[in-house]
């Protein structure tokens, strides 16, 4: 591999972006890759998920020994990125500190629209271009996974050069943003959208795909998360629909198995509820299928720990996301 692959994970809030980003990093590492997973929103979601100390502005190894690969994690914040940037380009050692003292950094990164995003993505760009220790060894990381902002903001976040177009016409921020945008649009980048099978998130996902496509940003997979497995097979489903599997029939089986037959009514009602939810899921799945995007599905697990992350990682690999 000659360049660092970039996986951007977006999605509606709370659908599982952080979980999927980390699972994807583990999946890639499982293929023997050296992977960096970054977060950019100052929430320490990765650290919480992996149950490690808060991540600094410095890459830390968080997992290794999975099929020979390694996962590093990094929390990128705009303030540190700006200080680092000033230091690199202007050798603003002391003046950089002065900037901090005047509250300028806060000011510049929150007020000038787009500057924050350029700083965050600029850091990713810098890392993606790094080479390994030895000469000619290729990139330092095989892949970078970004736990990115939600769908509503993702296009602006990745398409930074448009965002800062109104700002400085020349100068380093402008140059930087053009390079970042070029990287985001390149073949080595994939933007994955995490969703759940509900109305609003699915609609947002479809809108997001259209927006990304219009901005020439490469859409990767739609990762459908929190999928509830079908527990009733076709025979049971139609038996409930037709009414042949009713309280009486169920009650008889329960009694013969030594259980309380009077709970049959509840069980049948629960079965109907399950079928109804499955039908709603299916309807949303059909909507997603109308877009061209490839999809992968992850089940709703009972809690998320390292074991379940590895389970999700395996499923992402099987479905070709990693």
């Amino acid at each position: 591999m000659s360049s660092t692959a970039l996986h951007v994970v977006t999605g509606k809030g709370g659908t599982g972006k952080t979980t999927v980003a980390v699972a994807l990093a583990l999946a890639l590492a499982g293929r023997g890759q050296r992977v960096l997973v970054c977060e950019v929103e100052g929430r320490q979601g990765i650290a919480q998920l992996l149950d490690v100390a808060p991540l600094p502005y410095e890459e830390r190894r968080v997992a290794s020994g999975l099929g020979g690969g390694e996962v590093f994690a990094l929390a990128i914040d705009a303030e540190s990125a700006l200080l680092e940037y000033l230091d690199m380009f202007y050798r603003l050692g002391r003046a950089g500190k002065a900037l901090d003292k005047f509250g300028v950094i806060d000011f510049a990164t929150t007020i000038a629209p787009g500057v924050r995003d350029v700083l965050l993505t600029g850091k990713v760009y810098e890392i993606a271009r790094r080479r390994g220790e030895k000469k000619d060894t290729g990139p330092q990381y095989d892949a970078i996974v970004i736990d990115a902002p939600p769908t509503g903001r993702i296009t602006r976040f990745l398409n930074v050069s448009t965002e800062v177009a109104g700002l400085a016409k020349v100068g380093p921020i402008r140059r930087q943003s053009d390079s970042v945008t070029a990287m985001m649009r390149s073949d080595s980048t994939r933007v994955h959208l995490v969703t759940v099978l509900e109305e609003m998130p699915v609609q947002e996902t479809l809108d997001g795909i259209a927006e990304l496509t219009a901005a020439e940003l490469p859409v990767g997979h739609v990762v459908v998360n929190l999928v509830r497995d079908a527990l009733l097979d076709e025979a049971a489903a139609s038996a409930i629909d037709e009414g042949s599997l009713d309280a009486e029939a169920v009650g008889a089986v329960l009694s013969s198995a030594g259980l309380d037959g009077s709970t049959a009514t509840t069980l049948v009602a629960e079965g109907r509820g399950h079928l109804e939810r499955q039908a709603l899921q299916a309807a949303q799945r059909a909507l997603l299928a109308e877009s061209d995007a490839r999809t992968a599905e992850l089940p709703l697990l009972d809690g998320v720990d390292l074991g379940s992350l590895l389970d999700l990682a395996g499923r992402l690999r099987e479905q070709g996301v990693a």
Binding site: L231, D233, L245, V253, L267
Partner: peptide, 16 residues
């Protein structure tokens, strides 16, 4: 047949 279907209903109950 019916036993298996009831088993599936029990699965639904367990999930809930």
């Amino acid at each position: 047949e019916t036993e298996t279907q009831v088993a599936e209903l029990l699965d639904v109950h367990v999930e809930r």
